[in-house]
Nucleic acid binder design. Sequence first.
DNA 1: CGGCTCATTGACCAACGTCAATGCCGGTGG
DNA 2: CCACCGGCATTGACGTTGGTCAATGAGCCG
Lengths: 252, 252
Amino acid sequence: MRTRSLISKLEQFTELSAVEKQALEDSTGDIREFAAKEDIIEQGDSPDDLHLLVEGWASRYKILADGTRQIMAYLIPGDLCDVHVTLLERMDHSIGALSPCKVLFIPRHRLANLMRKHENVSRALWWSTLVDEAILREWLVNIGRRRADKRLGHLICEMLLRARAVGLTDDGTFEMPLTQEELADTMGMTPQHMNRCFQMLRAERLISTRGKLVTIHELEKLVSFSDFDPLYLHQEGNRVAVGRNPRAPDAA
Amino acid sequence: MRTRSLISKLEQFTELSAVEKQALEDSTGDIREFAAKEDIIEQGDSPDDLHLLVEGWASRYKILADGTRQIMAYLIPGDLCDVHVTLLERMDHSIGALSPCKVLFIPRHRLANLMRKHENVSRALWWSTLVDEAILREWLVNIGRRRADKRLGHLICEMLLRARAVGLTDDGTFEMPLTQEELADTMGMTPQHMNRCFQMLRAERLISTRGKLVTIHELEKLVSFSDFDPLYLHQEGNRVAVGRNPRAPDAA
DNA sequence: CGGCTCATTGACCAACGTCAATGCCGGTGG
DNA sequence: CCACCGGCATTGACGTTGGTCAATGAGCCG
């Protein structure tokens, strides 16, 4: 099942029948691999296929005139890169692999068929784009109104819940294949300051790291430290979910 | 024509036939007025009608636990407040009037009919939500990566172009019915600092203000000062548009 | 004339950026 | 096996942007 993680995510919104799942699976095309730092889609492209991230992490980003970068979204397995772009002639930003990635290509016409035949799948896909937008809004809040250390805490909470929804967590620990520089470019700061933030969170015993593995010792403490409210993720049973794992990790 | 500004905006994306325009107009319901600072939609609501802003400015915002506010979008005439919410059970943020507003209510079932019958209108409406999302991404870039004074300059450029698209500008001047505090809550700073930013832009002769009227003396200077690239607004003939008025202001 | 909201000012301070090293670690060629 | 290299993490000193606090003014309205 190459669409396992997508389905796992969509089922947070609505139950899908076996037929629907199969139809989704049957709509998929090739899988292509991308190396870390490679672009999956570049600004100016107008891709013919929908891109589904199956493995690895990627980012939506823009490069400014002065060469600085702003990352506007993280994509993890189960996330779609460009559900919509058909309507805008060209991408106004790029999507790049943050770690080695596997990307599933879904020809647009097959997607269109799928969505026409399966109302339920169609709604679930739209739901996922609405959640993406909600996440974007929350990032704006995060950058606009929270201090650097809380900002990092907030992001870590979010990524834990998102990773959990696609079965990529092991209790309070998950892999976050990002450099501190990438995180800095996400949260509007410098790598040096990002580093200081990590040290604060570690000193407060809110998180610890080993390589790219992050572990959150007591999610509730980090949640309240970071003023995190999972409502915006629109995950079913959200509030309950902060505390335990709502679904058994999928078998690999 | 109560949908004049919406149509004016949509026609940046595609020409609409007289029949389509009429169908859009016929789908509308009541108009309601809101006073400045009044909420049009509150967090937690799940509205039955689509809300189209016809007059005045409104904002999408969230209030944080510590009482601070983050504004995540400005809505001006022609903008839709909640094209989608049907799919998410409840609003994860509020929409409030910034100035006295007139809001046109469009019953969801009529909208659904309209979109079913008129593919072209449907596409135009989706296009407008995609543009909203693109704007949101650009705001993230703005807050994340630009210094306070450029941030303000960037926003002013954007609002000029958006206002122009719905016939609300008079050359380089337009009404921006916002307090400095609201602007500060938009761009992640304090009102005091926002005030300093205004003074910088005025000192550089990039803008001047009289009451709520803002005038941009030479758009090109402000554009380059603010590192503004109108691509993200996905307005037809964008690049040309920075400089002259692409359409004659609609007769009132 | 108060009383309100909003704009403006100035002194001071903290968060965060800048600059310039240094350390760490995994990978690679010899 | 080991020296070296390159990318990333970390550190410290110091500078700047923007926040805080506390007034003062300016315009509007009953």
